[in-house]
Simulated assay, not measured.
Amino acid sequence: MSVVVGLALGGCTGGDSVERARAQVTAKEKAVASAQAEFDAASAEFCGASSDYIDALDRYGDVLNDTAPTVGDVQVAGADLADPRDDAFDGAEAAVDAQQALVTAQQELVEAQAALAAAEAGPSGTPSVVPTAAPTSTPLAPASSVDRVKQAEADFEDAQASVTEQTPLVEASEQFNSAVVALEMAWLRLFADAGCLTDDQQVQAVAAVSAYTFALQQDLATAGYYAGTVDGVSGPLTVQAIEDLQEANGLPVTGTVDKATATALQAELVALGGAAAQESLASTAAVQQTLKLVGFWDGPVDGVWSDELTAALQAFQTELGVEPTGAVDAATIAAFERAIAELTAPDAPASPSPSPSSPPAG
């Protein structure tokens, strides 16, 4: 009799352990779902905060290009970046923490599934179901993108620290211009790398910006102004090369490419020979192709910067709320990315088209 009771009790104990293991798996599945929801929310918060910071950098760049009476305007604009920058960094930290919490929850679920399999198999059996392999943690964004942002932030702080109340506005603008462009482009790349765009949007947006910058860097290198890596990433060396080109040709030193700057670069490349001149068409063609994608250019993609192309660029800038300078600056590059992202969104409305007052294509 005691043997029968013992066997019965043993059977109940085994059944209880299986039920406990199943309950544990259910609890861990719920924990994973909750952690996933928190990670999705944190990621969305980071994307929103970083987008706001990029917009703030756009506005800051506008101040640098305006004719302000004192350098104080520039300093105030710089101070206005503090809150959106802090929000962006706080959002990034929260997203990283949420991602790690998700990985931990997934690991605990795998362990619970293994315990259930062992309980169902019994002391001498083998599990009927092999648990999923333990998840590995993938960084929210590549380390190179994060490092580029950190370096750009440090460079920008150095530029801010170098300006005093006695610094002329023009000099302050020149000091800040390279740092602002590099900082905005670094955040734009991180924005894409962190998954704030869908895969298709990311490919097209990054490709559009990189194609223009890559071609421009190559042209500047051929002309002897750029000695950095031709990588399609705009940074201080790229902006400095543009400024050197402008200074050498007696143009306003802005660090951005307008028709006069493009013409000067083209002339220098023509002087170097046919092959260099042919390659120089690529950067202007990239502008034409991007405007064509968003519906503001139906002329040829021939690499020739015409008055009509300047007018089309200004019409695009006006439509997107960017200062209509007719030059390709950081704000316009950001607008390119946003417009292409909207264009490729699954439920996006039709792409922007020129208003009736837009100029004819050339």
Rank of each mutant, 00 (worst) to 15 (best):
V230S: 12
D231V: 09
D231I: 12
V233H: 06
V233P: 01
S234N: 06
G235F: 01
P236E: 08
L237Y: 03
L237T: 11
L237A: 15
L237E: 14
T238K: 03
T238W: 07
T238G: 13
T238N: 04
V239H: 04
Q240Y: 11
Q240G: 14
A241W: 10
A241M: 12
D244L: 12
D244K: 10
D244C: 07
D244R: 11
D244E: 14
D244N: 14
L245V: 04
L245P: 02
Q246I: 02
Q246F: 03
Q246P: 06
N249Y: 09
L251P: 11
L251F: 02
P252L: 15
P252N: 10
V253Q: 05
T256M: 11
T256D: 06
V257M: 15
V257A: 03
A260K: 15
A260I: 00
T261M: 06
T261R: 04
A262D: 15
T263L: 07
Q266A: 14
Q266P: 00
Q266R: 12
A267V: 03
E268A: 13
V270F: 12
G273A: 02
A276H: 05
Q278T: 13
Q278L: 13
S280L: 09
L281Y: 07
L281V: 07
A282T: 01
S283V: 00
T284L: 03
T284S: 03
A285S: 15
A285V: 02
A285L: 04
A285P: 11
A286D: 03
A286R: 05
A286T: 01
V287G: 01
V287R: 09
Q288F: 03
T290P: 03
T290H: 05
T290Q: 03
L293C: 00
L293I: 12
V294S: 07
V294E: 04
G295Y: 01
G295Q: 09
F296T: 01
F296A: 02
D298S: 10
D298C: 00
D298I: 02
D298T: 08
G299F: 01
G299T: 04
V301K: 07
D302K: 13
D302I: 08
G303D: 05
V304D: 09
V304N: 11
W305Q: 06
S306Y: 06
S306K: 12
D307A: 09
E308K: 06
E308V: 00
E308C: 10
L309Q: 06
L309C: 04
T310V: 10
